[in-house]
Design a protein around this nucleic acid. Structure first.
Length: 1010
RNA sequence: GGGCCUAUAGCUCAGUUGGCUAGAGCGCACCCCUGAUAAGGGUGAGGUCACAGGUUCAAGUCCUGUUAGGCCCA
């Protein structure tokens, strides 16, 4: 190739390209977030952004927002990603609205999952064996040290990931539930509840490992197949006549009786035998603890004669049961509904008197040995009558609570019976008892049938031995216990959740009229706002049905319940004693519980000052209790440990809690209860919930989906992920898929390009020097129009942020960049930007507007695109690498207050009509290039005539425009025969040959100076 | 099995106290520009509102049931 003109064409007389003011910028089209975000992070860290913001916000009204602590285990996942981004949008947007928004991030550090992991690790490394040689307290300390290290490791990891997500919080000083001051503050809450008389000790069935003599949590169970004896046992009825009556035998039918009627069959005669109730169980060893038989009220039960004896079982199971037992003579005598059996009494096969449970000598046993109803009775196995032992099963326990049975557990921790059982069972292990009980039943004629049965059965994950259900003493917070003025926690909670007629609902604005300030920001003291509103129902339902809160656990890694055991075996725990230990834990941490003697632990306690102290209390005889607190109690006390303690009393109640909808039962509820108990009001004013991540098809996200957070940072960058979160309808389930991140990336690039184009037209503009006074803008100018549009969008975005409608903010911002700017305004002003003299008033005015738009846009985007907004903000000001200028230290721009002419609506309608007409002309006249066309707009009311025809032309991308008051539709002029300006490419009617020999329009000739 | 929630275009979502031809963005198709260029602009085609009943002059919207899915329980 030579340097000559390509393809032998004649070179244009003159190239005007270098006389144009084409856009120029160092702001790259490609964001390269993966590299550049960490640099922003470093710059912000260097400037101490979080502290600088607190400093700057001094004296401003405070917005109190409280972080719910994630569990310090593993990497953060997609759920955290959404949760943390939403929280960050709140923190940053409220900050830019002029609030002081301190935000202390937290972690939940105690608890079983960590202890479990640590124990597994100790096991695998062989260190667990050494623990067995240590004193129990020393062993616990060793485990606790490991757990602490583990938690610290994951706090560090997650904290790093959250920072990489560009979230703004006090990461230098987070709250950890294992901090000594936090522990002290939790015990203060406990003390408050103890003072209100809400904390008590009671029996509750738990999974129990005989091998390790400890209670186990669900996570510590492994299910393995096990062969057991399964027995069908006949419990003799106490009152034969009553049973026959229930089946309609030997009794006149009452008149007017409704409902399911008993149905006698055959001759309707009453047999002479005493009938029995047949139950089925795979744990014969629990039969000594049997206190009731449960039936389902709605099932049909049959009175059956089987090989001579008469028994009751579910009609549907008669065939299966008798077939299994090989019965020969089976006859159904009558059937009846389950509810007619309820209340009938029976005799225990080998116990004469209902036992007096140990520790409850005064227990009411009048309800024992009766038939009760229960919903969980099924017809899948057994007989439809369920053996009920409240001391040995959760469902049995709840049934017992409901109908008023004592909790009876005759089995000791080592798996042997205590002295309350018949002599032939005493001190026997339950496994041995399975055989003995079966044998005894067979001998006494109560055993209908027995067989071997293989089923999945829970085993202790450590010893691999089968576990049993056993009642143990636990600490509870009573939700139905009346407090001082007579209300219970449940009543107070339901009241707080209740919608009062005066509280307008918070709802997402779908249009502007719903976005009124009057719709929100209404506070009725003690009432909770729910976003979305259905959270109210959900929480109410949960509060109505929740049982007393079991707050004790038998583990090592947690905050000890500072309860002591007195010489007589009773528990010692008073408000003052708990406060005394709280003070010590504040100073020394809860490890002290394991290293100090009771008297030392109580060094701040003086029984003489404690009216609740038991009489004759001798501190030297106390023993330490072995329970720790439920971790939910710790996180549920964060309003005290974090908000009140660190941020002061005016940070309570907190404005907002924001978590996933699972927290209606978790953190939301378990923060509400202690706060109601101690402070008498909810800890928060508004609860905002988001949904869960599901896959592309709306199904539960599998753990192995492979979206590691590092991978996402690597592929998309934090700003794109944040932009995606901002776009979500977070109040429902959120679908995730790679494709969605990619789409968010596309949409991000559109916004980025709009910013870039604004910046690229400001390369020769210095704000201080070239600014035009916007006050003097003509309301009919395009610049006035776009500023008014910005004002409108800006106000709407702020309202959306204010009401946590981030998706709406996202839509508004995207639409403004894409439509208002990119396709309308910026497309229209290109001609004047490129072709006007650089310092023409028209161009400078548009540049002023562009500068302000870029500035305002950066600020509105800053809460979401925090890297990109800052990058653009700094590029706009042209600051150097080390300059501390930062959009995050700014607030949102106030409105420009520029007035646009009311006729603009008509102009935009005309633009739409013009574009449509051009499309038609393209098809019909082959008029492909809009610059070859002119447009004549109808203008019946004369509105358009008031506007600059040049603006009308530029808005449609045509060479010229005019109006015709009499026309009825847009006319397209074919200008292809008119000369074209070699510089602006317009055929505007002023193009002619100029002194330099070029064909130029008047404007371009002047710009070039020929 | 129970409580709460969800179902509208290929995808993500709007659709208010029932009331014009059910809207938007993305994607897709076709076209323009080549002076925002791994950019930018224009036009257009897409819907049995999950299904089945009911209330009403009128139902995407209200009621009942069914199906599918999510969270929390059992």
């Amino acid at each position: 190739m030579t340097g000559s003109t390509p393809r032998g064409e004649t070179a244009p007389a003159r190239s005007y390209k270098k006389t144009l003011n084409l856009p120029k910028t160092g702001f790259p089209m490609k964001a390269n977030l993966v590299q550049n975000e960490p640099a922003s992070l470093k710059r912000w860290a260097k400037a101490g952004l979080y502290a600088a913001l607190r400093d700057k916000a001094k004296g401003k009204p405070r917005f109190t927002f409280h972080d719910g602590p994630p569990y310090a285990n593993g990497s953060i996942h997609l759920g955290h990603l959404m949760n943390k981004c939403l929280k960050d949008f709140v923190v940053r947007s409220k900050g830019m609205m002029g609030f002081d928004v301190p935000f202390v991030p937290g972690w939940d550090c105690h608890g079983l999952p960590i202890e479990h992991k640590v124990m597994t690790g100790l096991h695998d490394s062989g260190k667990a064996a050494k623990l067995a040689d240590l004193e129990p307290s020393a062993a616990k300390m060793a485990i606790r040290r490991e757990c602490k290290k583990y938690a610290e490791k994951y706090v560090k990891l997650q904290s790093g990931q959250m920072k990489r997500l560009l979230t703004l919080a006090d990461y230098d000083d987070p709250y950890l539930t294992m901090h000594t001051s936090y522990e002290g503050a939790v015990l203060e809450v406990l003390a408050g509840l103890v003072g209100k008389g809400l904390v008590f000790r009671a029996l509750k069935p738990v999974h129990w490992s005989i091998e390790n003599e400890t209670a186990l949590a669900d996570a510590e169970l492994e299910y393995e197949d096990r062969e057991d004896i399964s027995v069908f046992v006949e419990f003799e009825a106490e009152d034969a006549a009553a049973v026959y009556a229930a089946f309609g035998l030997g009794e006149e039918r009452k008149e007017g009786e409704t409902g399911k009627m008993p149905v006698p069959r055959g001759d309707g005669e009453r047999p002479s035998q005493t009938p029995s109730f047949m139950i089925w169980t795979t744990t014969p060893w629990t039969l000594p603890a049997n206190l009731a038989i449960a039936v389902h009220e709605k099932f049909t039960y049959a009175l059956v004669r089987i090989d001579g004896s008469v028994t009751v079982l579910a009609e549907e199971l008669v065939e299966a049961v008798t077939k299994a037992a090989g019965s020969e003579d089976v006859e159904v005598l009558a059937t009846t509904a389950g509810d007619r059996l309820v209340g009938l009494r029976y005799r225990h096969p080998f116990i004469d008197e209902p036992p007096k449970p140990h520790g409850e000598p005064d227990a009411d046993t009048s309800k024992c040995y009766t038939v009760v109803s229960a919903d969980y009775v099924t017809l899948e196995d057994g007989t439809g009558l369920v053996h009920t032992a409240p001391g040995h099963g959760v469902e049995d326990y709840q049934t017992g609570l409901r109908v008023g049975l004592p909790v009876y557990c005759p089995v000791r921790g080592d798996g042997t019976y205590n002295h309350t059982v018949p002599e032939w069972l005493r001190d026997m292990s339950v496994w041995e008892a399975n055989e003995k009980v079966t044998q005894r039943l067979r001998e006494s004629g109560h055993l209908f049938h027995d067989n071997r049965f293989t089923h999945s059965y829970p085993h202790d994950w450590r010893s691999k031995t089968p576990v049993i259900f056993r009642c143990t003493e636990q600490w509870f917070v009573g939700v139905d216990t009346p407090m001082g003025e007579g209300k219970t926690l449940r009543e107070m909670a339901l009241e707080a959740v209740q919608e009062s007629p005066g509280v307008p609902r918070l709802s997402e604005p779908s249009s502007e009229k719903h976005c009124d300030d009057s719709v929100r920001r209404t506070e009725v003291p003690g009432k909770i706002n729910f976003v979305p509103e259905w959270g109210r129902n959900r929480m109410r339902g949960m509060l109505e049905s929740r049982p007393d809160w079991c707050i004790s656990r038998q583990r090592s890694w947690g905050l000890p319940i500072p309860a002591f055991v007195q010489a007589d075996g009773s528990a010692f725990l008073t408000e003052a004693s708990v406060r005394a230990v709280a003070r010590l834990f504040r100073e020394e941490g809860s490890d002290a519980w394991f290293t100090k003697e009771p008297a030392e632990l109580l060094k701040y306690y003086n029984p003489d000052d404690d009216p609740a102290a038991p009489k004759g209390l001798d501190l030297s005889l106390l023993k330490k209790g072995g329970d720790i607190l439920d971790v939910w109690f710790e996180s549920g006390s964060s309003w005290n440990a974090v908000m009140r303690e660190r941020l002061g009393d005016d940070a309570f109640p907190v404005e907002l809690y924001l978590e996933g909808s699972d927290q209606h039962r978790g953190w939301f509820q378990l923060s509400l209860l202690p706060s109601l108990g101690v402070m008498g009001r909810p800890p928060y004013r508004t609860l905002l919930t988001h949904g869960f991540m599901v896959d592309k098809d709306g199904r539960k996200l599998s753990k192995s989906a492979g979206h590691t957070i590092e991978n996402l940072f690597e592929r998309y960058g934090a700003d794109v992920l944040r932009w995606w979160v901002c776009s979500l309808a977070y109040d429902n389930d959120v679908k995730v898929d790679d494709e969605f991140f990619a789409l968010a990336g596309e949409s991000y690039r559109k916004v980025r390009n709009t910013l870039r184009f604004l910046l690229s037209n400001l390369y020769d503009f210095t704000a201080g020097e070239h600014c035009v006074d916007l006050k003097s803008l003509d309301p009919k100018s395009l610049d006035a129009w776009v500023l008014a549009e910005f004002d409108h969008v800006s106000a709407e975005v702020k309202k959306a942020y204010d009401g946590y409608f981030f998706r709406r903010a996202h839509g508004l911002l995207y639409g403004f960049c894409n439509d208002t700017l990119s396709s309308v305004y910026l497309a229209a002003v290109k001609d004047r930007m490129y072709c006007d003299r650089p310092d023409s008033p028209r161009r400078r005015q548009t540049q002023t507007v562009m500068w302000d738009l870029a500035d305002g846009l950066c600020r509105l985007l800053a809460p979401v695109l925090c890297h990109t907004a800052d990058e653009a903000y700094r590029a706009l000001r042209g600051v150097g690498k080390d300059d501390p200028a930062c959009v995050h230290l700014e607030e949102f721009l106030p409105e420009f207050g520029v007035e646009a002419d009311a006729g603009w609506a008509k102009v935009m309608e005309a633009r739409d009509a013009g574009l449509l007409a051009l499309e038609k002309a393209k098809a019909e006249m082959g008029l492909d290039n809009p610059l070859d066309a002119g447009l004549v707009f109808p203008d019946p009311d004369g509105v358009l005539a008031g506007f600059d025809p040049l603006d009308l032309a530029d808005l449609c991308g045509v060479s010229r425009a005019s109006v015709d008051a009499g026309a009825s539709e847009v006319a397209v002029q074919d200008l292809r025969d008119e000369p074209r300006c070699e510089r602006s490419r317009k055929r505007d009617g002023t193009v002619r040959e100029r002194s330099d020999g070029g064909m130029l329009s008047d404007r371009d000739a002047a710009a070039v100076g020929v």
